[in-house]
């Protein structure tokens, strides 16, 4: 009896430590490759002056520069707005594709899924230069517009904000599609048939059944696309043509070109904080809406 009790206690103890071993590799990985480097960035951002090598002291100089300078403020706002626009456009385009893929039999889904994932396997620089060729005056889009009579002569399409947003949408759309698809594939089609039996039209079924159930996928997809967009720096640098500034490219310039790591670090931390706030707000809003929908469903 006593032995059994001891064994039971040991079993409980083993169970309580087992989870620690299971998460240990992830924790170690995050500690060494995320937390420690991040701590380095935080420390660097508090150095005074323009260089971190040989620097000493602690100062809020960089943060004051970022917060008080209207240029950095406007670039930060533009970056956040661009992130929201790209997330919304990806949702509008990606949701129908993700939903339809989820409703396909696995055999048919496989090849379509490969087509969705294919752009992710290409180098970003190759994609961007490809787009510049397509959007150029002698490119496919201009030729098409001239041939259908929409324009008289080729016009300048790249090197503006619209072109940057278009290419960002193309780059990050697969993330939204995959996120929506993974959630929609778990929604039982019987629920849609039930809604139809209750005389709900397609739009009502979509609004009151599919969207609430797919909300976690929508939110995670939008967050993913938002994060990728606000941290983008290759596309705005190459397609923006100097007219489009995003915070990612300014951080790159300060860290890599000017070697001003204190300012680059402060810009990166401000971006991280603002992005975290936006994501937390989005999560909070989604959770609230979700809870309200669930309580009204329970009441009925």
């Amino acid at each position: 009896m006593r032995n059994k009790a001891l064994l039971g206690l040991r079993g409980q103890g083993e169970a309580s430590t087992a989870w620690m071993w299971q998460i240990a590799p992830t924790v170690m990985l995050l500690l060494f490759f995320f937390i420690l480097p991040l701590a380095g960035v935080v420390r660097t951002s508090f150095y005074p002056g323009t260089r971190s090598f040989g620097a000493e002291g602690f100062s809020f100089e960089q943060y004051l520069k970022v917060i008080l300078d209207p240029f950095y403020r406007s670039v930060l706002i533009d970056t956040i707005v661009d992130g929201l626009i790209v997330s919304m456009v990806c949702l509008v385009i990606g949701f129908p594709v993700g939903y339809s893929l989820a409703r396909l039999p696995p055999k048919q889904r496989r090849w379509r899924l490969i087509l969705v994932i294919l752009p992710l396997t290409l180098s970003l620089v190759v994609i961007v230069f490809g787009w510049i060729v397509i959007l150029g005056r002698g490119g496919l889009v201009n030729q098409l517009l001239v041939s259908i009579g929409a324009i008289d002569r080729p016009i300048r399409l790249p090197y503006n904000r619209t072109a940057v947003l278009l290419i960002l949408v193309q780059q990050f759309l697969p993330y939204m599609i995959l996120s929506v698809m993974s959630v929609c594939s778990k929604i039982d089609p019987v629920l849609e048939h039930a809604a139809a039996n209750l005389r709900a039209n397609r739009f009502t079924t979509f609004r009151r059944v599919i969207v609430p159930l797919a909300a976690p996928g929508i939110v995670s997809g939008m967050i993913l696309v938002f994060i990728l967009t606000v941290s983008a720096f290759v596309t705005p640098r190459l397609v923006g043509g100097g007219n489009v500034q995003m915070l990612g490219s300014i951080i790159y310039e300060q860290v890599i070109v000017a070697l001003n790591w204190p300012l680059g670090g402060a810009l990166a931390m401000v971006l991280l904080i603002v992005t975290s706030i936006v994501i937390s707000l989005a999560n909070l809003l989604a959770a609230k809406k979700f809870a309200r929908h669930r309580s009204s469903a329970n009441a009925k």
């Binding site: 230069f129 510049i132 060729v133 150029g136 005056r137 002698g138 490119g139 300048r156 790249p158 090197y159 640098r237 190459l238 043509g241 100097g242």
Partner: peptide, 20 residues
């Protein structure tokens, strides 16, 4: 007069070659 300023040599080369 500027159509684009860029940090990339390849990008600038492309702009001249495509007569952009």
């Amino acid at each position: 007069n500027i159509t684009a300023v860029t940090p990339s040599t390849v990008n600038l080369l492309q702009l001249f070659e495509q007569e952009e």
